[in-house]
Nucleic acid binder design. Structure first.
Lengths: 217, 217
DNA sequence: TGGCAATATGGGACTCAGTCTCATTTTTGT
DNA sequence: ACAAAAATGAGACTGAGTCCCATATTGCCA
């Protein structure tokens, strides 16, 4: 192994590759260990031992113990904001937010859906992780609003609608993702069904927005 | 001091009064100390010394350091859920959610608005507290949806609209509260303006919901 | 190819929130 | 006044997150 660029992945400065591998090893070990024995019954000491790195090095890869557990979700948020900020487009802003999200979902790499599903199941039984997940979505929302502000040349402090829009998009995400994990609806035999199904669940949630405003007691 | 029930407040089992006073002393000391020197530059040791209780007793009053800092906000959430669950009413569910919230706001006790304002300002400069606040609102949302489920005999897992409704109500809250603290809009000379103004800001945010869905790029 | 600079790593000490146990004090009800 | 019940506080303990510094690894260029 010397000069060639072996196979798949990206041929980065070679140094970056190792980092990516370590990063991934940590996320995988976290998902496995936390799922097996419970988030707070595994110390960072054990986790880093599994990934064969020192404890202090861990914090150069992930900011907190929660972050490494929810790594798969974080990857989606990276993709979402990237898609949305490069997406041109006209028309209803909510549609743009929706499209960027579903696009990001379906273009996640092979196997991501499985990792994400395991992540959500872990979070479902671990309050502190569920909170972390909720908070992440709120932070993405904030970034999206900032992008919208730039694009529309409007200050969200002057126009509540911008912030509401961000709220709605992520509300739909939370609802859609929840239903996907629960495996409800249409072709729902044994949970999920890959990124395409997840995207559909999110679409359904977006579709339900107008109707929900009419709901009466 | 023996047999009479001095003045204001409620004449509770007498033991409860002391507890309430301690609880409040902690919250006040927290707001003062954290605002003066910064949330993470004050240890619980110092805080409890100020309130003249032992460190271990603190955790019988508040679950975390964040909780005591955001006590005023927590009181609003107690009031909101109480109002909403006892509120009868027909008509659009979103209106019911809105009314219960504004009712709760205007019926907060004297001086609450000042404490709440200080709380929000503290949170604005302390990421971990801002997160805590966001998360609290999401938890209230969850409780509201549970109440709605009972009342409508619908499982929110089968009907996305319920959850979206909860999301929208708290979205409006977050936007309205934000504008209130910023002191924008109408009669906004130097910030806020009491609970009535806060309630108005929240109303404005609710009003903006339908329009925001139409926003175009 | 050798060697230097930049960068990644790991050891280990330290702070502090949060948990737990147990002995002591305070309150309440009778 | 006394016994049961509840609140308190001291102190030990765990583990996450921060920081510093010495060492190793990699990239770069002469």
């Amino acid at each position: 192994m010397s000069t060639d660029t072996p196979e798949g992945e990206s041929s980065l400065p070679l140094r970056e590759r190792k980092k990516q591998r370590t990063r991934r090893a940590l996320a995988d070990a976290a998902l496995t260990l936390f799922s097996e024995r419970g988030f707070d019954r595994v110390t960072l000491e054990e986790l880093t031992a599994h990934a064969e790195i020192g404890r202090s090095t861990f914090f150069r890869y992930y900011g907190t113990k929660e972050d490494v557990a929810m790594a798969a979700e974080g990857e989606l948020w990276e993709a979402y904001t990237a898609h949305f900020s490069r997406q041109a487009g006209q028309g209803p802003a909510l549609d743009a937010l929706r499209r960027a999200l579903t696009d990001a979902i379906v273009s996640m790499p092979e196997g991501w859906d499985q990792r994400f599903l395991r992540t959500r199941r872990l979070a479902a039984g671990t309050p502190v992780l569920h909170d972390h997940s909720t908070l992440s979505s709120m932070k993405v929302q904030k970034r999206l609003v900032e992008i919208l502000e730039e694009r529309l040349h409007v200050d969200s402090r002057d126009d509540v609608r911008l912030r509401l829009l961000g709220e709605f998009a992520l509300s739909a995400w939370r609802c859609g993702a929840r239903n996907w994990v629960a495996g409800r609806g249409y072709n729902a035999r044994r949970g999920h069904g890959g990124t395409a199904t997840l995207a559909r669940r999110v679409d359904e949630a977006f579709d339900a927005i107008p109707g929900s405003l009419q709901l009466t007691l």
